[in-house]
């Protein structure tokens, strides 16, 4: 077992000559970690994520998944290890029915058909898709198509999930459902890397946050550490979530804690009030 499940060393990549997007990215992720990737629009988050399932290949440097150099491996081989969620469901869905879309991955794993059926049935049920299993994905609304792409990943159950803005365009119920599923996968030991602009999700879920800025990893650590680096936040167009900003403002009153979620900040404020009375 490799020590790092995902590794990039001095990774360079650009879509056009002389315009590198990634300028020497180096990072290592141990198995089972919950990692958020943040950065301004156009900072290269998607470009970096696509290196981890072989959709893009390093122009310089190296990317390793579970210890193996991606340069030696096909996208098909990598799909067994890395489940990739595209930013837009349109980029992902291509089968004529929802059932076939969700069955595509497990079939390609070469599983017996009874096992494929079990996995598809379970995934459709998990995402409330039983009613639309026979429909073409194109007639479904955005939120439902997003659930189809998540069900496809769930049916594969790969050890690594690489998710490009998994909550964009979802309503509140869809967002909570999606984050709950990702949280469950993390709880059973899967490695999660997700790109997002939602700092409240970063604060609440991520063990570690990577900031991509000007083609390099500009910060790497727990969310609470990042939120203290004001100058970097401003350069990278990031704003901490309201709870974190309020926790900072209440520190002069003796508030302890980082206020990483509404529940956490509520406990911290209640503790402060009780201490002072």
């Amino acid at each position: 077992m490799a020590e790092w499940i995902l590794e990039a060393s001095e990774l360079w990549f650009g879509y056009e000559e002389h315009q590198p997007i990634l300028r020497g990215v180096t990072l290592r992720v141990p198995a089972g970690q919950f990692v958020a990737l943040v950065g301004a629009n156009g900072s290269g988050k998607t470009t970096l994520l696509k290196q981890f399932n072989g959709l893009l290949r390093p122009q310089r440097g190296q990317v390793r998944v579970a210890g193996q150099d991606v340069a030696q491996r096909s996208v098909g081989e990598m799909a067994r290890q890395v489940g990739y969620l595209f930013q837009h469901p349109e980029q992902q869905i291509f089968s004529p029915t929802v059932w076939q879309e969700v069955a595509f991955g497990p079939r390609n794993l070469g599983l017996p058909s009874s096992e494929v059926e079990d996995r598809v049935r379970e995934a459709l049920a998990r995402f409330g898709l039983n009613g639309v299993a026979r429909l073409p994905p194109a007639v479904l609304g955005y939120g439902v198509r997003r659930r189809v792409t998540l069900a496809s990943l769930a049916a594969m159950d790969p050890p690594i999930l690489v998710l490009d803005e998994p909550t964009v365009g979802l309503d509140d119920a869809g967002l909570r459902e999606t984050m709950a599923w990702i949280g469950e996968r993390h709880a059973v030991g899967r490695t999660i890397v997700f790109a997002t602009h939602e700092m409240d999700l970063v604060a609440e879920y991520a063990e570690r946050v990577l900031v991509l800025h000007e083609g390099q990893i500009a910060a790497d650590g727990p969310p609470a550490d990042l939120f203290r680096q004001k100058e970097l936040l401003s350069r990278a167009s990031l704003i901490p979530p309201p709870v974190v900003l309020l926790a900072e403002a209440l520190r002069p009153y003796g508030l302890q804690g980082e206020g990483l979620s509404v529940d956490a900040l509520c406990d911290e404020v209640v503790a402060l009030v009780e201490r002072r009375s």
Binding site: D171, P242, L246, V262, C266, V270
Partner: peptide
């Protein structure tokens, strides 16, 4: 109705429940 609420509104509501206050703030 599937609508997200501001973190500060959720905090105000949670504090009111715990402390018996009547906060109604929505912004930091």
């Amino acid at each position: 109705l599937g609508v997200a609420t501001p973190q500060m509104a959720r905090l105000a509501t949670a504090l009111n429940r715990r402390l018996g206050t009547d906060f109604d703030f929505l912004t930091v």
